[in-house]
Amino acid sequence: MKKFLLMLGLLSALFAAAAPAKDVTLLNVSYDPTRELYRDINAAFVAQWKAQHGDAVTINMSHGGSGKQARSVVDGLPADVVTLALANDIDAVASRGLIAKDWQKRLPDNASPYTSTIVFLVRKGNPKSIKDWPDLIKPNIQVITPNPKTSGGARWNFLAAWGYALKQHGGNETKARAYVQALYQHVPVLDTGARGATNTFAQRGVGDVLVAWESEALLAQRELGKDTFDIVVPSISILAEPPVAVVDKNVDKHDTRAVAEAYVKFLYSPQAQAIEAKNFYRPRLSAVSAQFAAQFPKVNTFTINDVFGDWHQAQAKFFADGAIFDQIGPGH
């Protein structure tokens, strides 16, 4: 027993000694596809802050499904900054009083420093010749897209498809609904997250086309082989705006507001915009986008607000319990 206590004492001493020194530490709670992006951004920001202020900043990352991450922050995950997949998830945090209600107006461009869009990833040479949205519902086409209930990216996919169909049929909701329902009939696997869907498509060889964020498609191409996949840009798609915000209640408690605000502003700087572009997110600064024009083909896009009012309405109409996705999703 004595030996055991001694061991316990030793163990706790070991772990206590290894605790980080007293520096400024930020926790950035983000969604799945931004792992590579923020690894680079953090390194650049830490170096810049050190050069300007002489203080060492440590930035810890937490990644997961966007909705789950928002919920964790509400449940007490001490995030200083949230960088999520869609505004609705940050709204959920704000509605619990952790973030000021007007968060989206505190930063430029709807508080989203970078954008993306929804594209198709197909197998090399595009053997099923998938060119645009209507091709997805042709016979013998299998479409991979994750579950909009559990994945933020999947909600963008759903809304992109709906927006296309709505425009195609002159605003006829019934026809849009029929198209999206047909689309989900072609989905054999409904993964819980965007990365899971990419793995199913790329690693398991399931499906003919992956509907994905452009950033994810480009990354998959780089990580998993340029000679295995092609990217197809549809005639029209959605402008995905992943937003960022400082979590007011937490930064005041941790006394980290200055660093946290500098961090989110840094995301708009030319240096950070170039890093974002390198990580396949479309930058907002036109000078930087001009530099990366070859990587990002011109896409005809619409925004959430153009077609659906805002995220809150889109969420309630399509993804709430018993709403449209529950009525027409796969299995119906």
Binding site: G65, G67, K68, R71, V74, A92, N147, K149, T150, V187, P188, V189, L190, D191, T192, G196, F319, A320, D321, D326, G329, P330, G331, H332
Partner: peptide, 27 residues
């Protein structure tokens, strides 16, 4: 289960996944 199921509602969706979905809706 979640990796291998396919997770299609009414066909290959397990009850714990429904719990997770409800949590995503803050329900």
């Amino acid at each position: 289960v979640i990796f291998i199921a396919g997770n299609i509602p009414m066909r290959s969706e397990i009850a714990p996944l429904l719990i997770v979905e409800k949590l995503e809706e803050f329900d």
